[in-house]
């Protein structure tokens, strides 16, 4: 027996789950895929007194495209996000990124909502959510609200979810015309926590010049870290090597704040971030140009 003792409840319905959250607040810990929570419990770093198992509520696991958004239920497994052709067709950035999240055995069990609500700054999907401008639907017994991704992640393992709330759904905008998306990371082994990683999104106007750009980093601070100034440096540019190099230099040296660890010093993380930014921006510009005709 490794985890400390806890009370275990399988809610009969979403309403029942929300009642439990209303009564117990933070003490009632939702058990989603368990791929982050259970290791923490095995080490007794987490000792929730009450676990509410979401795995028996099929109404929490679904995904579809509607109103220009990919809408994903909180208990959708990472493997579903990786393999469902709807995801690859409408939000190719997600299909490109998910294979980098841990290993197949973890993705078979790990959930989208659990990953996002865990808010690990080294995790990939939160960075995708911030870069795309995803929205999070939080629900409690007293109502529901939508939270923009950039307001959802407050810090390491900390979100703006209130004690009585659970994350019910996340929506990602679908791919836009003349827009290129790219993800790049470096890990010691495939599936391990990355030392550095970045999402680049580039939109071009009819003349082929950048009219909006996003650069967001993982493992570069307490939460997904945007490089707003570096992204703005690309506006009006067609993606020349000089502009990409300058943006990558600025983002990696001025805008991100990696902590460094046993596997990579802060300097090395900045070095990796600079190279990854160049690589991701180059790919994003190429993909945006290939997207020049409106997508059917």
């Amino acid at each position: 027996m490794k985890p400390a003792a806890f009370e275990y409840i399988i809610p009969e319905s979403l309403d029942h789950l929300l009642q439990i959250k209303a009564e117990h607040g933070d003490e009632a810990k939702p058990l989603a895929g368990g791929q982050s929570l259970i290791p923490a419990m095995n080490f007794r770093m987490a000792r929730p007194s009450l676990l509410v198992d979401l795995n028996r509520l099929p109404e929490l696991a679904w995904l579809h495209v509607k109103d220009g958004e990919l809408q994903v239920g909180t208990m959708t497994r990472m493997a579903e996000l990786q393999h469902n052709p709807t995801v690859a067709a409408h939000v190719p950035l997600i299909a490109e990124t998910v294979p980098h999240i841990a290993h197949p055995q973890i993705r078979n069990r790990g959930s989208v909502g659990g990953n996002l609500a865990h808010a690990d700054p080294a995790s990939e999907l939160p960075v995708v959510a911030v870069a795309l401008g995803a929205r999070f639907r939080a629900i409690s017994a007293s109502g529901e609200r939508w939270i923009p991704a950039h307001e959802f992640f407050l810090g390491t393992f900390t979100t703006s979810l209130q004690p009585q709330e659970i994350l019910l759904e996340v929506t990602f905008p679908t791919r836009q015309d003349r827009t290129g998306y790219a993800f790049a990371e470096v890990a010691r082994r495939h599936g391990d926590y990355a030392m550095a990683g970045v999402v680049a999104v580039v939109s071009l106007n009819a003349q082929g010049q950048c009219d909006s750009a996003q650069l967001v980093y993982l493992n570069a601070g307490d939460s997904p870290t945007p490089a707003v100034t570096a992204a703005a440096m690309l506006i009006g540019n067609s993606g020349t090597p000089a502009a990409i190099t300058a943006a990558a230099q600025h983002a990696s040296m001025e805008e991100i704040a990696p902590y460094g660890n046993l596997h990579a010093s802060t300097e090395f993380q900045r070095h990796l971030a600079r190279h990854l930014t160049q690589q991701a921006l180059k790919t994003a510009f190429e993909r945006a140009r290939a997207e020049f005709l409106p997508h059917p």
Partner: peptide, 16 residues
């Protein structure tokens, strides 16, 4: 294998 899919048995509770 859980219903044919590879998963970690150390990251599940038996009752699940």
């Amino acid at each position: 294998l859980l219903d044919g899919q590879a998963v970690r048995s150390c990251l599940m509770f038996a009752v699940q």
